[in-house]
Computed example of a mutant assay.
Amino acid sequence: MSKKMYNKEQVVAGLVIFIALVSFPFWYNLGKAAPAPTLELTKEAKAAKVCVRPTEYMKAEHMQLLDVWRDTVVREGKRIYVNEAGKAFNMSLSNTCLDCHSNKAEFCDRCHNYASVDPYCYDCHIDNPKETK
């Protein structure tokens, strides 16, 4: 029985084809990402002039802040959040955040859809609590 030797060129060609196929989705979509949505602030947000935290922090970390708020309210019974500037806020998605960012479809949903995330906030919180009162 003779052993069949693989040709070096065939191995290299196979590796090149494999790498091309595996990397195809990445280089095919290179540079085709949609731009991030621009958000318009409501009159209330413009009038407030300040958010609970700085804008860049809120863009990146708002879900972590809301999780901390939820745990603090539910587990410790504390409802007041004091930011770095010393301003106090009620820890409430419905009554603090949605006071300024009341248009969920134009503010929240645009970024969440862009990032392909489905937050569970609205499993419990209604979209616009002000309309039901």
Results as ranks from 00 to 15, higher is better:
Arg53Tyr: 05
Glu56Met: 10
Met63Arg: 05
Leu66Phe: 15
Val117Thr: 15
Phe107Thr: 01
Lys104Cys: 03
Ala115Lys: 15
Gly77Asp: 11
Lys87Cys: 04
Val52Glu: 12
Leu65Val: 13
Cys97Ile: 09
Lys87Asp: 07
Tyr81Gln: 04
Asp99Thr: 10
Ile80Gln: 10
Asp109Gly: 04
Lys104Val: 06
Arg70Val: 00
Glu76Pro: 05
Glu76Phe: 15
Tyr120Pro: 01
His101Cys: 04
Leu41Ile: 06
Pro54Cys: 12
Met58Ile: 03
Glu44Ser: 13
Val68Trp: 14
Arg110Val: 10
Glu44Phe: 00
Thr96Gln: 08
Ala45Gln: 11
Arg110Glu: 07
His62Phe: 03
Ala105Leu: 07
Ser94Gln: 10
Thr42Gly: 15
Cys100Leu: 12
Ala48Val: 09
Gln64Lys: 11
Thr72Gln: 13
Glu106His: 06
Asp118Pro: 00
Tyr81Met: 06
His101Ile: 09
Thr96His: 12
Lys104Pro: 04
Val68Gly: 05
Ser102Thr: 12
Ala88Leu: 03
Ala48Tyr: 08
His112Met: 08
Met91Asp: 02
Leu98Met: 10
Asp109Tyr: 02
Ala60Val: 05
Asn83Phe: 06
Glu61Phe: 00
Trp69Tyr: 15
Asn83Tyr: 07
Phe107Glu: 02
Arg79Gln: 13
Gly86Ile: 13
Lys59Gln: 10
Lys43Leu: 13
Trp69Asn: 02
Ser116His: 12
Ala88Cys: 05
Val74Glu: 14
Thr72Pro: 03
Trp69Thr: 00
